[in-house]
Design a protein around this nucleic acid. Structure first.
Length: 288
DNA sequence: TCCCAGGCTCTCT
DNA sequence: AGAGAGCATGGG
């Protein structure tokens, strides 16, 4: 972990000294479904606040930012404060030393190749409930359609902020019936979504509990939800619970592993297999 | 048209 | 426990 360096100017938070970062690589690599390209950056909700995120690179590194780059988060409908600045920094994973992490990973020649393909990827630390729901939607589905369905449910049940809709909370989703989900074209996932919302609302699935458990226990705990198997549980743990050991295995990763790492995940990724996974996933999806 | 998608459940061996 | 069909939908 490293310190988050930031200053607040009006409605903007300016972050510095965070190492490599690439917004498109990070927001479009399939880990988040509710960030849209907007002007020179991306727009979406962080900590329930509508944010406009830009990166002013000093262009010393090809395709990525150099060490004097500034990442700016403009809060479009609220004023920033220190607590929010830290939480947004954590969401963007600015507290994780990716320079050191990637140096360690790159000792493996093949892994180094995957990282070089998109070195500015960061694994975000997203909202637990939203990640749970969006990755239930993701199963046996393609990324453009996952995004469509996430937008659809937000527009119908989420809070409108300006001209954008936040992803709904569990409370906001409490009265959605399975028929409603089917009418919205969620297909066979209707029962899964209804069960997930119910179990979060009645406390069967508790965010603080998930985050207190070991990786193995947490995966089993999440699989109490109908429609949550090992892959969806792994995504929730990796993308919203900082379980960096979690290594989601989808069809792309299975193809990539067979080709690149037939003997399994390389030792160099030990302890942070999930972060390595995201570089491999992105490489596979654009190369295989 | 056909195949497939950040899979899981259910059933049959 | 391991394999395989079925699942809803629509992008390519």
């Amino acid at each position: 972990m490293q310190k988050i360096h930031y200053t607040i100017q009006d409605n903007k938070i300016l972050y510095k000294n965070f190492g490599d970062y690439h917004l498109a690589q990070t927001f479009l690599c399939g880990q988040a479904f509710r960030f849209d390209e907007y002007r020179d950056g991306f727009k979406g909700f962080i900590e329930k606040q509508l944010c406009y995120i830009t990166l002013d690179s000093d262009s010393t590194v090809e395709g990525c930012c150099g060490e004097n780059a500034v990442l700016t988060v403009e809060l479009l409908h609220t004023q920033p404060n220190d607590e929010l600045a830290v939480k947004i920094g954590q969401f963007l994973s600015l507290d994780t030393d990716y320079t050191a992490l990637k140096a360690q990973f790159s000792k493996n020649e093949t892994l180094a190749k995957a990282i070089a393909f998109a070195p500015g990827i960061r694994v975000l630390n997203q909202d637990f409930f939203e990640t749970l729901i969006t990755f239930i939607i993701s199963q046996n589905n393609n990324i453009p359609r996952i995004k469509q369905l996430c937008d659809r449910i937000s527009e119908k049940y989420g809070t409108k902020v300006g001209d954008t809709f936040a992803f709904p909370t569990a409370q906001q989703m409490k009265d959605i019936t399975q028929q409603d989900y089917r009418d919205m074209k969620f297909g066979f996932r209707a029962a899964y979504l209804a069960d997930a919302v119910a179990k979060v609302l009645d406390g069967t699935i508790d965010e603080a509990t998930v985050k207190s458990l070991s990786y193995e226990e947490a995966q089993k705990y999440l699989m109490q939800i109908k429609g949550v198997g090992p892959k969806v549980a792994d995504c929730v743990l990796l993308f919203s619970c900082r379980q960096y050991r979690s290594f989601p295995k989808d069809v792309w990763i299975k193809k990539a592993m067979a080709q690149l790492f037939p003997d399994g995940i390389p030792q160099e990724a030990m302890g942070y297999e999930g972060i390595a996974q995201q570089y491999i996933f992105h490489w596979a999806r654009h190369t295989l």
